[in-house]
Nucleic acid binder design. Structure first.
Lengths: 334, 334
DNA sequence: TAAAAAAATGGTTACGTAACCATTTAACTT
DNA sequence: AAGTTAAATGGTTACGTAACCATTTTTTTA
């Protein structure tokens, strides 16, 4: 391994000067600069990032704890986050959380002095959150937030749930089913609250048989599908808490021979890209802004790191309906 | 920042002993161990990964250079790679390459002494490959390979192209169109060669009007779609070099009012998960093994790192057809 | 042209850890 | 119980860099 000392010796200058050529070339005379650069090229010198981090107490590295990529929402945020961070000179350590390995992920993250942490996988009452705050490392939550309301970038989840559900009512659906994840997560809680709110507004009564709250794995959603099939009075529309859920349910229904929306209407939330595909055409609710939540969050985080101040970021993005083709208008009941 | 020296002072032992408690606890007496652990907990000591990397000359970090996630193939490989690496104690620095920023990515990677590099974005005659070999860092290519045939995990691309195309012929399609990326990439080259081979076998003549080789961006594929529309004699089937291309073309066709497969048959290559969705049901060719290429590659890479030997890994996975619903059988021409 | 100021370069040190060797302490042997 | 071996602990150093202060060289100023 060739070090700055080797370069210094080769160029006949001090190690300090080599460091200056690399970091503050304007402090160095032209001929010296050329001499050192020649040595650097000749010896193929690359500064050691670890040594640099050690002495500078920064690593130019950000840890990303994302939800799993089988949820297309995280495909888009991960892309934005990784690309924006790289463009701004940061490395990104990526971790995918399944909400069970979160403890291990935290432990591993704190070992490597990252400059910042951006994460989606946090519960409303997450005990691990205290650790995060105590660490003093700048952090930001995207998608989900914590009960403390610190540093988050979210969509207006309640409004999203409301808009989606109210839209179904507006098309005369009354037997509306909810399929969502645990309300320990702010996204699911907010969206479900919005769902309830729409029922209230439309003077409709919640039918507990048509409320499914639980793990959103494929297997579990299939169980939900089976239960829905057994219902004597089936719903005419499904309000899915995420596009990922909606798309998975579509798969089950279509595979079983149903037609969407003729036999069953489905609406999602997130406005994920694949939902725009002509084969899917998922009606959904998503943020109005073309910039996704991940991108907004990473921008804020990098600003926090660079300016060394830690303002409390609280961003709730407005949402709107994206009408596509998975919902049918029903005849008004008499 | 609390260091091992602080812990040592607090516990009344030497820094060396603290290091031993952390790394080789069996070399330390029980009471000493407890004393030091108490101090570690009390002071909330976390070893500094940068200092450790500096002295040990390893970083427990692997760099991943992946293709973009809008290609679902990379969604699956990225998931496998990140998860497997994390489970095995490695951090993953992720970079998404669009084949233009590859130079910058390389530069940034070499700064931080990663223990290994796993990458998909390499050209057959990539000049950057020399740099990679010269660095001495263990590396492995997945999906694409380099002309030097060193350290790759690929599918049998030629066979994939052949199987896909031959399948179209077997269903009596003669006017088959090829849409693929530049043949500077081993995947596209192999698949296109297989395409040609199938034409030969079926005594069919290539019609240059129906061969589209170029950038596979959405915009460019749309241009391809427009050109296809202008053709006097339109193809009855499209052989897409990747599922991503196939799915994008489906979107254009369906949006334009066509039906797949009634109006146009489409086959892809990669066997991407979303292609299995009941709304898409893409017929495709993919590896027979249930373990994806990324997973195979990261396993090999970690073995290389841990065993410190650098065998030349050359894996070509067998492929098979996955029959679904985007292809129609034509009547035999007379 | 001498003095003062600014620019350029060098020398030394700290960062936090594990490697390495030295020393002390405990545990066997006969 | 003395000698030998093994176990446990400590002291010092290297890793490669940038920060910091000191010194030399060059430029500016009166």
């Amino acid at each position: 391994m060739v070090s700055s000392k080797d370069v210094a010796k080769y160029a006949g200058v001090s190690q300090t000067t080599v460091s200056r050529v690399v970091n503050t070339p304007n402090l160095v005379k032209e001929p010296t600069y050329r001499k050192v650069m020649a040595a650097i090229d000749e010896l193929n010198y690359i500064p050691d990032g670890n040594a640099r981090s050690l002495v500078q107490k920064k690593s130019d590295t950000i840890a990303l704890i994302s939800g799993p990529l089988y949820n297309p929402f995280f495909v888009e945020t991960t892309t934005s986050i990784v690309n924006y961070a790289n463009e701004n000179g940061f490395k990104i350590n990526v971790h995918f959380s399944n909400d069970e390995n979160i403890e291990e992920i935290y432990n591993s993250i704190f070992e490597k002095k990252v400059d910042g942490i951006i994460l989606s996988s946090v519960l409303l009452e997450d005990p691990v959150f205290a650790k995060l705050e105590k660490s003093g490392i700048p952090f930001i939550l995207y998608n989900r937030k914590h009960e403390s309301n610190k540093n988050f970038v979210e969509m207006d989840n309640e409004q999203a749930g409301f808009l989606a559900t109210d839209y179904l009512f507006s098309l005369n659906h009354r037997e509306v089913c909810w399929i969502g994840g645990p309300t320990e997560m702010s996204t699911f809680k907010g969206r479900y609250d919005g769902f309830l709110k729409a029922f209230q507004k439309n003077n409709a009564a919640i039918n507990p048989e048509k409320i499914f709250i639980g793990n959103t794995s494929k297997e579990n959603l299939y169980q939900t599908f089976l239960k829905l099939e057994e219902l004597s009075e089936k719903p005419t529309a499904i309000c899915a808490a995420t596009d990922a859920i909606a798309i998975q349910m579509m798969d089950f229904y279509i595979s079983a021979g149903y037609k969407v929306p003729e036999d069953i209407s489905i609406i999602g939330i997130d406005n994920v890209k694949i939902g725009q595909h002509a084969s899917i055409n998922l009606t959904t609710v998503g943020i109005s802004s073309p910039i996704d939540l991940g991108r907004i969050a990473i921008e804020k985080l990098i600003k926090m790191i660079q300016q060394k101040n830690k303002p409390c970021v609280q961003i709730t993005e407005a949402v709107r309906l994206f009408e596509r083709k998975t919902i049918i208008k029903k005849k008004k009941e008499v």
